[in-house]
Design a protein around this nucleic acid. Structure first.
Lengths: 345, 345
DNA sequence: TCTCAGAATGAACACGCTTTCATTCATCGT
DNA sequence: ACGATGAATGAAAGCGTGTTCATTCTGAGA
């Protein structure tokens, strides 16, 4: 009996279990493989002995022969962001339920994805890789990680050029039109005429698509095109740029933000610095519906992109591709809808 | 084709690199090990060929022989929480800088940590494990993960019983007294007399320690003991229980929350439902100083537990223990301090 | 020129596991 | 009772790497 710190007990191995239970090592392997053919009583005995010895199969050794690491690499630009962390949470939970462990990597502050990281990650042999860094090209991923098959998250509402560019990948299509249209309609219904679009990071495909969609819908409804407030998905930037827009530029009576956090910044700028009321003077709508959006101080009306739904769809694609690497490319679809709270009417 | 190496679609192996570069496979291994003795020109050649072949050493195979997986398991109850995700972000960033990859696991909704998860995680052979689930006993961790050495996060301000219980583990001591004392002093200075403590989850050591410390400091200053508002670190619960306290119980003129998110819930209950002003009618202080605390709608005065500092200290302990498993147990210390914003005076 | 220490080299082994594959065992239909 | 069928079994062959260890090479000092 040694003290807990200096104790260096080595892990139990299949050999030890086999010897203890008086069976062959192969039997131990089979006992832990549900589909292997082994006599039930024998399996029970082995599992019992294994538990006594605190034995767990070594995933590294296992992955060497099976070719499956049960690891899924996830790349996130900023784990601490509300949206990103909620996305990560949903995905990790879903992966865990399917028997995969999450291998988490964080990129630098911007959305850029350097190949050093990918190369390093490749060393761990992940069965699949999910890159939430939006600007990474699927082809880059495919080049560096020769085993992984990328999935392309597209916004088919927009021009089809992007669509044509990657027809061979699995696709997850996010239909943003419905939610955005409901949002614009609601704001217009409450008298909004002059719209601003509070954009996210310029290289984000999502923000680009949302901006184009807002412009298009405004045009369809006979409203002037939106004024661009250039944000980067962050609170501080949204706060500052909203201030600038109202002080140096033309005021608006409706702000459509590319994400919820940006909307919070805009709301706070309007209320605490500009003395304007939301929604009476300015209507605000966000995008995402993160947990914080129902906090009473904001009570944000926002376009919901259901994270559970989106994660499940993504996971379906991944698992199907993992099961059959050569099947033709698949497409899943998720939609958006407006969640009405208190920042419009 | 005459060259089977370039036509192979699967991962490049050290053997392929060796054959292509006309060197032995051992040389390839040495080229990737900085301390190995190999002629510099030879190493350069090998690294060049390796890059051309898109070769990366297989960490699974490497870990089998070295005994180091370069994996650190992290267990979090809820990745999507602001505090948890900011903690995870800091730790992942720090680990990545040290050459470790993060193996992320999520526990069920409560703080409980089931052994199935630990056993599963053990299969991946993590070099170390960080469990942010506060109620897990270090001894449980040590029992299931025979290789990992737990680090005990303690609050030495509190009674020493806990301290004695685990004197053999490495310790990270969080000194909460300074920050809490400053907070109470500030609130008292602005006229607060009747305090409430908005607690977190009951099984959280952190909230227990904070509660005891608040009680002690109030006593020292001749103030009545705090009224307990039982929360669970969540916004909704804090909102509801604060409402209950003011409607069904005795109103207070100061709320000390065990975490920032709870403080947000309390503030929103006071302002939007009870028609009270913060800080004029009720003073509120939080704990953590998460990113959201400086958002203008809250502008929360809070006790800051510096996450970077805490993460660095934790990492120092882990790395030292990894380097020398038999060295005597170490203790690192981090402190807290009040960040004054707008919810007190 | 010779000696010798230290650097460089490669064959062989080990890590812990799964998967053939050939063999034995139990079961069943006739 | 007797092959025939399928399930159960274990020996051996890897998976891709780092690490001995014995050997060869290199260069400096005498």
């Amino acid at each position: 009996m040694s003290d807990p710190v200096t104790r260096n007990r080595s892990r139990a191995t299949a050999d030890m279990v086999a010897r203890t239970a008086n069976v062959s090592r192969v039997a131990v392997s089979r006992a832990f493989n549900p589909h292997a053919s082994i006599k039930p009583e024998k399996r029970d005995l082995i599992l019992k002995v294994a538990q006594e010895l605190n034995y767990t199969p070594d995933m590294a050794a296992r992955s060497m022969v099976t070719g499956r690491s049960h690891l899924v690499g996830i790349i996130v630009p900023d784990v601490s962001g509300p949206w990103e962390s909620q996305e990560l949470d949903a995905m990790t939970t879903a992966l865990q339920a399917e028997g995969f462990a999450t291998l988490l990597f964080r990129t630098r502050d911007d959305l850029s994805l350097d190949e050093t990281l990918l190369t390093y990650m490749k060393g761990f042999n992940p069965d699949s890789v999910i890159a939430y860094a939006e600007n990474v090209r699927p082809t880059t991923l495919a080049r560096v990680l020769d085993r992984a098959v990328p999935i392309y998250i597209g916004y088919p509402d927009e021009e089809v050029s992007e669509e044509e560019a990657a027809p061979l990948f699995d696709r997850l299509d996010v239909l943003q039109r419905d939610g955005i249209e409901q949002a614009v309609a609601l704001m217009q219904g409450y008298g909004a005429r002059r719209f601003a679009f509070l954009a996210g990071k310029t290289n984000s495909l999502a923000t680009q698509s949302r901006g184009r969609m807002v412009r298009k819908i405004l045009a369809e409804r006979g409203l002037p095109p939106p004024i661009l407030i250039q944000g980067d998905y962050m609170y501080d930037t949204a706060y500052r740029e909203t201030l600038n827009q109202f002080r140096l530029g033309e005021p608006v009576d409706a702000i459509f933000a590319a994400n919820d956090v940006g909307a919070f910044g805009a709301i706070d700028a309007l209320r605490t610095e500009l003395g304007l009321r939301v929604p009476q003077d300015v209507k605000v709508v966000g995008f995402d519906d993160i947990h914080q959006s129902h906090w009473k101080s904001y009570n944000l009306t926002t376009v919901k992109l259901d994270l559970t739904e989106r994660t499940q769809a993504l996971l379906r694609l991944i698992l199907r591709r993992l099961k059959n690497p050569t099947s033709p490319s698949l497409t899943e679809t998720v939609s958006t809808r407006l969640v009405v709270r208190g920042t419009v009417g």
